[in-house]
Amino acid sequence: MSGRPEGLAATVEARPLLLEIEGLTQFFGNLRAVHDFDLSLRKGELVGLIGPNGAGKTTVFNLITGVYRASAGSIRFRGMELIGTPSHEIIQLGVARTFQNIRLFSKLTVLDNVRIAYHPHAGYSLSDSILRTKNYRDKEAQLTERAQDFLAIFGLEQRQNDIAGSLPYGLQRRLEIARALATNPELLILDEPAAGMNPQEIDELMGLIRFIREQFNLTILLVEHRMRLVMNICEWLTVMDFGEVIARGLPDQVRDNPLVVEAYLGRQAAILK
């Protein structure tokens, strides 16, 4: 099976496939940002994608979520081809993501940030909202209540009417994850969730990731630089450098892989080690 490391437990390998990426290649002009990238995720896995700056990790995320259209290759999610599918449809199929630099709707309230994610399933039509029908009032009340329940899970309920941009950094991260989960995804893609966090905040974040994974039956793919996070929670890792996969394996295997050390620290360091 391509795109997976060897030596994973048989129980893991028995789970159904969720995401299959094969031969993914992306050019920006003459720059080859991603080359022949393979990755397969089975349901319920928590997998890390690591690599030095500029290795092409975020590009892979952007390709999965339809921000760019891949030059070649295929991305199948639950058997459906994602390349060529518009972003908002990919999200509605059950893929959700967060951003490296937090991108909240920062002038809207915390509650509205979550409610916007419910929009595709709001359940009332434009004429309902303009005429203020009973359907509008009922569905809107339901929707608000659901969003409030959701915020309660993330401990943000009491701040529902605060402007999102006014929250402290850690809570903004939390809200961004909450907003992504409000789209009801099966696959969650986290782009450097620990960026700018101190060790204590990272510990909290790890707790949060474990919690949502269990709570929402998620499969999680994350890009991260902070080894503390990656080594602790990821089941296995894929390492990229210059747009290509240079290693795959369990966290311990990857840490000792000379190619990986070289990519991060340079050839000298690899020899010294």
Binding site: I91, F99, L104, F105, S106, K107, P120, R179, A180
Partner: peptide, 10 residues
């Protein structure tokens, strides 16, 4: 507020 983010919440 943010076109890209809007797209990526569906």
């Amino acid at each position: 507020e943010d076109e890209r983010a809007a797209q990526l919440v569906g």
